[in-house]
Structure formats: C-alpha cells, structure tokens
C-alpha cells in the first residue's frame, strides 16, 4: 500500500470542478445547437456524471489501488442495479397496468356470466365501481379506466 504513488488529490478535485462546470453549462447552452441539443445534454449531463463518478471511485475511494476483488464487488453491485431494473421494468414501466390487466378475458367472463343469467352485480352501472373496489392499489387507475371503457 505504502509503495503506491497516489496522484495529487488536488488535481483530481480541480478536474472534478471543471467537469462540474461543463455539466452545468452544457445543458444550458445546448438549445442553441438545434438538432444536436439532445445529444449534447445527454453527453454533458450524464456522460460527464459517469466520468466524475469514475474519478471519485477510482481515486477518492482508492479502488484503483485496492486488490482487484474490491472493484469487482462494486461492479457486481452495479450490475445488480440492472437486474433490479430488469425485474421491475414490467411493473414500473407500465404502471398504468395495460400490460397485464386482461380486459378481453374479463369481458368474456362477464359475457359468459350474463349468458348464464348469473347476476354478478346489482346493476350494470355499478360494475366499474365494484371492479375498482376489488382491485388493490397498484392497478387502481387502470381498472378504473377499463371500467369506464366498458361503459
């Protein structure tokens, strides 16, 4: 450990400050560049954020000088972030629920029940409201919507 030559932390700090200025200024001036505005915002805001994060991890967190398993653990944690996003994407990215509520089968079931003259609810008008009550919080909005559509 003692054998390593650490870089000047001040230099890293100044680099970070300059990058910070760029990352603030970039999105500010981006609209002037017309069609390039979006890539410029992405690059200056997020690209530079990644670079800054790398500098902090590598130098201030000493990962560049640690045994190799330390950065591996960090990378493993980081990759788990993507696992989490992947696992929740089907729910979180379709929070309105159109991806999993099955209006077709529900309607078919209602029709089938009607055909058997089996009274599901007091009146047709109550139907949407009842569905709303049965649903748990997650699909709240969507059920309401699908109920409305049926009307």
């Amino acid at each position: 450990m003692a054998g390593h030559n650490h870089p000047s932390y001040l230099k890293i700090y100044i680099t970070l400050v300059i990058l910070f200025i760029v990352s603030v200024a970039g999105p500010e001036v981006a609209p002037a560049f017309g069609v390039f505005a979006k890539p410029i915002v992405l690059l200056t805001a997020f690209g530079i954020a990644i670079w800054k994060a790398y500098l902090v991890c590598a130098y201030f967190m000493h990962l560049k000088f640690e045994k190799i398993y330390a950065p591996y653990i960090l990378l493993a944690c980081f990759s788990l972030l993507f696992v989490f996003f992947f696992g929740t994407a089907t729910d979180a990215m379709f929070a309105n629920g159109h991806n999993w509520v099955k209006p077709v089968s529900e309607e078919a079931a209602v029709e089938e029940a009607k055909a058997r003259s089996y009274v599901l609810h007091g009146s047709h008008d109550d139907h949407g409201e009842d569905q709303h009550d049965d649903s748990d919080g997650a699909d709240h909005d969507d059920d309401h919507d699908s109920g409305d559509k049926e009307h």
């Binding site: 729910d91 629920g97 997650a138």
Partner: peptide, 22 residues
Amino acid sequence: SFFVWAHHQFISGVDPRATYLF
C-alpha cells in the same frame, strides 16, 4: 439469489411473464 425475489410477489400484481422467469 439476486434473481428470485419476485417469487414473493406472484399474486401482488406483477407481470405474469415475469412470474415464468422467477
């Protein structure tokens, strides 16, 4: 063990396709 968590949520309203995976 990081790829199994949603098996606690099969009836919580997660996407049915996710349940195959989990």
